[in-house]
C-alpha cells in the first residue's frame, strides 16, 4: 500500500511551519495510522532527516496523548475514536492524507504535530478534586450512591483529556472537557461540599486560558473518543448559574 502524506512540519513554537509531502510505500492495511508514521520516520532517519514529532503513548485509546487532524478531522475520518485506533484500511491505496496538529490558540505548537495542552491541566488544578487528605476516608459503603448517579458520573469521568473537542470546535472551546470534569464531581455526594466554588473557578480558568465560548454546534461530541454528550455543557451552564445565584 502506498499513500502520500502531507504533513505539517514546524521546528519550534516561534518558527514558521509548512506542509511537506512524503510519498510512503510499503504500508499495509493492518497497520495503524501511527505505525504508518513510525514507518515513515524510519525512512526519514535512513535518509538522514529529522523525524516527524508526533504524540502517542498507550496506543490503545485511553491515555489521551495522541491526536492530530487527519484530512481536516480531529482523530481522522471516523467518529468517536482516537488517532491510535485508526488503521490504514480506512484509506485507499494512492490516497493523499493531510496531517496537521490540533488547531487552537490555547494549544500552541511545540514541534511538528505536537502541541502544548497544559492549559487543560491548569483547568483541573482549579478545583477538579475533592479536598480530603489521604487517611481521612470514611468506610466506603457509608456513602450510598444510586446506580444511576454513579453511571452518570462515570459517563462524564470517562474523558481522556485528548483535546479533540477543543481542536474540532470552531471557537476552540474547552467547554466539553471542563463540563465533563465538573459534572463528574458535582453529581457525586463526595463533591457536593465544593460544588459552587469548583464550577466557578474551573470555568474562570477556562476563560483566562483563552478557550472560546461554546455555541452548541455539537462538533465536539462527534469527535470525542469517549462519546461524552454535549448535554454535559448545558448541565455545567446550569450549575454555573446556580453557583452565581447562591453566592
Amino acid at each position: 500500500m502506498k499513500v502520500i502524506f502531507k504533513i505539517w512540519r514546524q521546528e519550534g513554537p516561534n518558527e514558521k511551519g509548512t506542509i511537506r509531502d512524503y510519498e510512503v510505500d510499503g504500508l499495509n492495511e493492518d497497520m495503524s495510522f501511527l505505525e504508518a508514521l513510525d514507518h515513515l520516520n524510519e525512512l526519514l532517519v535512513l535518509k538522514n532527516e529529522k523525524v516527524i514529532a508526533f504524540e502517542y503513548d498507550c496506543r490503545e485509546g485511553i491515555c489521551g496523548q495522541c491526536g492530530v487532524f487527519i484530512n481536516g478531522r480531529a482523530h481522522g475520518p471516523h467518529d468517536n475514536i482516537t488517532t491510535c485506533q485508526l488503521h490504514m484500511r480506512s484509506f485507499k491505496d494512492g490516497d493523499t492524507i493531510v496531517v496537521e496538529p490540533w488547531r487552537a490558540a490555547s494549544f500552541p505548537v511545540i514541534k511538528d504535530l505536537i502541541v502544548d495542552r497544559s492549559a487543560l491541566d491548569r483547568i483541573i488544578e482549579q478545583g477538579a478534586f475533592i479536598t480530603a487528605k489521604t487517611g481521612t476516608a470514611p468506610e466506603a459503603n457509608s456513602i450510598l450512591i444510586p446506580k444511576e448517579t454513579a453511571d452518570r458520573a462515570m459517563d462524564a469521568a470517562a474523558c481522556i483529556g485528548c483535546g479533540a473537542c477543543v481542536a474540532t470546535c470552531k471557537n476552540s472551546s474547552a467547554a466539553l472537557f471542563t463540563a465533563a470534569k465538573i459534572n463528574h464531581f458535582n453529581s457525586l455526594p463526595q463533591g457536593k461540599a465544593e460544588e459552587h466554588k469548583r464550577v466557578a473557578e474551573m470555568m474562570f480558568q477556562m476563560e483566562i486560558e483563552g478557550f472560546g465560548s461554546c455555541t452548541f454546534t455539537g462538533a465536539c461530541e462527534v469527535e470525542c473518543p469517549e462519546s461524552i454528550s454535549i448535554t454535559n455543557i448545558a448541565e455545567m451552564n446550569a450549575r454555573y448559574v446556580k453557583s452565581k445565584l447562591l453566592k
Partner: peptide
Amino acid sequence: APLIDHFVQQGVPFAREYGGTL
C-alpha cells in the same frame, strides 16, 4: 480495604448496586 474507602472519598465512580452500595 482502606484503599477502597480512600478512592471512594476521592470521587472514583465505582460500579454500584441499585441500592447505592459498591
